[in-house]
Design a protein around this nucleic acid. Structure first.
Length: 401
DNA sequence: TAGTCGTGGCA
DNA sequence: TTGCCAAGACT
């Protein structure tokens, strides 16, 4: 069985290209979702939305975006904010370097671009956290530059329409897709076109394509060949490793011990309860006591079982055993006095003893936030705490207009 | 270039 | 329950 012919041999006549562009634009005009960043198309809003939506589902992005714009309505306000505040707004979205990069970029815009978002592609690309995709997206969607945006949606749409028969993330497929993406952008309509390509990928040409509803069905080579389920060709899969870990909530009086993770690595600059992996031949309780000693120098003992939290990641599946802890009797301080600072801090840059209410202001990894909510939820809806928290879940209705 | 970096939804 | 994966960038 011969391989499918290379995509380049399937070039449709030029007039078909125009038909395809028009069919897509018409479909988008009638079917696009109403989204908050599709109102004014300011560069700031387009930028933030694009970064928020990286590796993130639309429905979740919308509620975070609205809250973000309330809190940081413009670049100057954002640039003046603390990283702590920015991370707290980002909490739950994951990939926290995106938030740190956004803050750094905002300050760079204030310092080097007079507080005005740059319109030149090279300057946009020079902002931290802005890669080829985001630069193209902002330049085309906010400034109308004739550039393609190639994200996973667009890769999928193009791979199906033009029957790209090798893994889309690698060459030669990546190059073929880029050339098609560029060729497809119509003059003067790049804003609508690029969003339309992504919207089509999100609403119609998804993992399970709904070809009966697709405005581009008559142009689609893989549909005609009956192989839409084989496009795009997937790349190498990551293996998911199960990880058994522990964490402990050390309490002293009404205070709780938390530490701030280092800037580099996973959950950079987020606050957490100390903990770590369970070693072979070690019980979760033993692991917790050992980790506390290694990370803080505190001698603790298990005082309560707080159950198990399961949390999935791209490459790990975490089973987190959670415990309530108290100081081991030997060095137990008087609970009425201020708890002691840790003798050492090997896995963090800062430590604090906080009240349950204080936890609300700290950005924490999702699994630790789940635990905190479980332990300290009582009283949470009572006025005080209710407000600064980032949205814990996004369930904005996204009806078509 | 191949890992790393989160999270929640979905089948 | 498990695997897959969504508007990527950085190292």
């Amino acid at each position: 069985m011969p391989e499918q012919a290379a995509a380049s041999t399937h070039l449709p006549p030029q007039n078909h290209l125009g038909d395809l562009q028009n069919a897509l634009l018409d479909w988008f005009a009638a079917n696009q979702r109403r989204l908050p960043w599709r109102v004014n198309y300011t560069p700031y809003e387009v930028w933030i939305s694009e970064v928020m939506l990286q590796q993130t589902q639309m429905e979740r992005g919308v509620s975070y975006f609205n809250r973000w714009m309330q809190r940081f309505p413009d670049i100057a306000t954002l640039a003046a904010a603390s990283e702590e505040d920015v991370l707290r707004q980002w909490e739950g979205l994951g990939y926290y370097s995106r938030a740190r990069h956004i803050l750094t970029a905002a300050r760079k815009i204030m310092a080097e671009h007079g507080g005005v978002f740059p319109s030149e592609l090279e300057a946009i690309r020079g902002l931290p956290g802005v890669g080829p995709y985001t630069a193209g997206a902002v330049a085309s969607i906010a400034f109308g530059e004739k550039l393609p945006c190639v994200d996973a949606n667009v890769e999928r749409v193009i791979a199906r329409i033009f029957d790209v028969d090798s893994p889309v993330k690698q060459n030669p497929a990546a190059g073929i897709i880029h050339r098609w993406a560029l060729r497809l952008v119509p003059d003067g309509r790049s804003r609508e076109h690029n969003q339309a390509m992504m919207e089509l990928g999100a609403l119609v040409c998804g993992k399970k394509p709904r070809c009966a509803e697709c405005p581009l069905a008559r142009f689609c080579i893989s549909l005609h060949l009956g192989i839409t389920d084989q496009r795009p060709v997937p790349g190498k899969r990551a293996t998911i490793t199960p990880v058994n870990a522990v964490t402990g909530v050390l309490r002293c009086g009404n205070r709780i011990f938390v530490q701030k993770r280092p800037p580099a690595g996973v959950w950079g600059n987020l606050w957490e309860f100390p903990g770590g992996r369970v070693e072979p031949d070690e019980s979760p309780e033993q692991a917790t006591v050992r980790e506390f000693m290694e990370e803080t120098g505190f001698a603790v003992r298990v005082a309560a079982q707080h159950g198990i939290i399961r949390h999935g990641y791209t490459t790990y599946r975490l089973t987190l055993h959670c415990f309530g802890l108290e100081f081991d009797s030997a060095d137990a301080p008087d609970s009425q006095i201020t708890p002691p600072q840790p003798p050492l801090l090997s896995a963090a840059t800062e430590a604090r003893w906080v009240t349950p209410q204080d936890l609300d202001a700290l950005a924490m990894p999702a699994a630790h936030r789940k635990l905190a909510d479980k332990l300290f939820a009582i009283g949470k809806d009572s006025a005080v705490a209710a407000n600064t928290a980032a949205p814990r879940q996004a369930n904005l209705p996204l009806k078509k207009p």
